[in-house]
């Protein structure tokens, strides 16, 4: 087990999941992935991530339902999470924020903004820019 901080990515689109994984690993984080709400739940319990990135629209329970469950579970309560979505359906942002989301980002997301939120959630300093 490394001392790197661990991020759970729950995203049903395998390519976007891969892109997030590559980017987060390059930024120095451990990444565990899940592809639906149910799997996200079990992965979170098993790996106790320091932060979660949740897609909203997924089979077997969307990201917001998952966020709610994680907050209600003793072992995962308080895990900071970022919500990622392709949908601008009214009320989604409000619900995400009410559940305590760190940020609500729309796809196609800005990678810099995403990393900035991740660092903020983990209390990590921004890297020195080259």
């Amino acid at each position: 087990m490394s001392d790197r901080k661990r991020i759970l990515v729950v995203e049903d689109d395998k390519d976007i999941s891969r892109a997030l994984t590559v980017r987060l690993r390059a930024a120095g984080y451990d990444v565990v992935t899940a592809f639906d709400g149910l799997m996200g739940m079990s992965t979170a319990v098993k790996h106790r991530p320091d932060l979660a990135i949740l897609d909203v629209m997924m089979p077997a329970g969307g990201g917001l339902d998952l966020a709610e469950r994680l907050q209600n579970l003793a072992s995962t309560a308080g895990t900071p999470f970022i919500v990622l979505t392709a949908s601008k359906r009214a009320g989604l942002r409000e619900r995400a924020m009410a559940l305590g989301a760190l940020a609500f980002l729309e796809k196609p997301y800005d990678p810099e903004a995403l990393l900035a939120e991740v660092r903020r959630g983990l209390g990590d300093p921004a890297p020195a820019t080259a």
């Binding site: 689109d13 390519d15 976007i16 892109a19 997030l20 590559v22 980017r23 390059a26 392709a86 796809k107 196609p108 997301y109 990678p111």
Partner: peptide, 14 residues
Amino acid sequence: LKSPLTAVSEFVAL
């Protein structure tokens, strides 16, 4: 279109 577009632009950026 959004999901593939997200993936394409992310991989290009990476």
